[in-house]
């Protein structure tokens, strides 16, 4: 057996889970376990207690609340990927989900788990930041919510405090008539960690002019970042300015070099993929046939 020994408990409510979590600083929550179990196997994590929240009914499911689609933390990535509600209301998330891990990890991996894990190259946090999602958190003192941009601090670092449990992610739904999305990613192998990922969502008016635009870049810095592309407002899909707007916006990125890709490469790819994602999103919003393609370096 590879992991160090631990005790295993399955609480019957979120409140009970938070109590257990707050009572022992060596306790960890486990849901899908697709990141935590490898860390246990390599003994990078050695919790004394694993608190299994995977089957708590109150944490699972997808529901509409006002202008937001609320996805329970332990909703499996696979179920979100197959959800008609997600496809209809959150096309950007629907487009990004097939890029998350592999099917056999999406089967157990959860939406909230990916958010809580805060990998800088992860797709679900990227979509959350791009759309300005809210992260719901419960602890023994009660429930609260914070914007995704405040939630993610750095690589595998979040604002979650000891005793906190992420309970749901609230993705805002754009209500405009013509909304389109685009998603591009470069990785070494299919569904491997992204060197760069770009997620874009735009809304056009009836004349095809942009009235709202969001672009997020993941994998480049220490967390996913939403860029300022408001320069696109009023522009059309064939705008020659598009690439310049993205290039100007990406100057805020702080790319890092590693074994797989240099900072310079990441920066160039961010501009290219960001431009493509926006072009795709505009074409999608106009109802054009739009290829969605990935790239493997």
């Amino acid at each position: 057996m590879k992991p160090a020994p631990f005790d295993y408990v399955r609480p019957d409510s979120v409140a009970h889970a938070c109590e257990l979590l707050a009572a022992d600083e060596d306790a960890r929550l486990i849901a899908g376990g697709q990141t935590l179990v490898p860390m246990l196997a390599m003994r990078l994590a050695r919790p004394a207690v694993l608190i299994d929240i995977y089957r708590l009914p109150e944490l699972s499911g997808i529901r509409l609340e006002g202008d937001a689609l609320v996805i329970g933390a332990t909703t499996r990535q696979m179920h979100a990927e197959r959800s008609k509600q997600v496809a209809d209301s959150l096309p950007l998330l629907a487009r990004a989900l097939p890029w998350v891990g592999h099917l056999p990890t999406r089967t157990r991996g959860t939406v909230g788990g990916s958010v809580a894990n805060a990998d800088p190259s992860a797709e679900i946090p990227l979509v959350a930041v791009t759309l300005g999602a809210q992260i719901d958190i419960t602890n023994p003192d009660g429930a609260s919510s914070m914007p995704a941009d405040d939630f993610f601090i750095g690589p595998m670092l979040t604002s979650v405090m000891p005793g906190d449990c992420v309970t749901a992610v609230r993705f805002p739904i754009w209500q405009q008539a013509h909304v389109g999305t685009g998603f591009h990613e470069v990785s070494a192998r299919k569904s491997d960690f992204a060197f760069v990922a770009a997620a874009a969502q735009v809304a056009l008016d009836d004349d095809g002019r942009c009235i709202a635009a969001a672009l997020g870049i993941g994998g480049v810095g220490d967390r996913a970042i939403r860029l300022d592309v408001d320069g696109l407002i009023g522009e059309r899909a064939d705008s020659a300015k598009l690439r310049d707007i993205v290039a100007a916006a990406t100057t805020v990125l702080e790319p890092t070099s590693d074994l797989h890709a240099t900072a310079d490469y990441r920066m160039r790819v961010a501009v290219t993929l960001g431009t493509r994602a926006l072009q795709d999103a505009m074409a999608d919003a106009r109802g054009d046939a739009r290829p969605n393609s990935g790239h493997h370096a």
């Binding site: 697709q34 490898p38 196997a41 390599m42």
Partner: peptide
């Protein structure tokens, strides 16, 4: 540790990595 897929089994018909789930789960 969840990389190779050699341990794949089906849970309710869907493929999962049996090395990434504990027997007690």
């Amino acid at each position: 540790h969840g990389v190779c897929g050699a341990c794949t089994v089906l849970l309710d018909g869907d493929p999962v990595r049996s090395c990434l789930i504990f027997a007690v789960q």
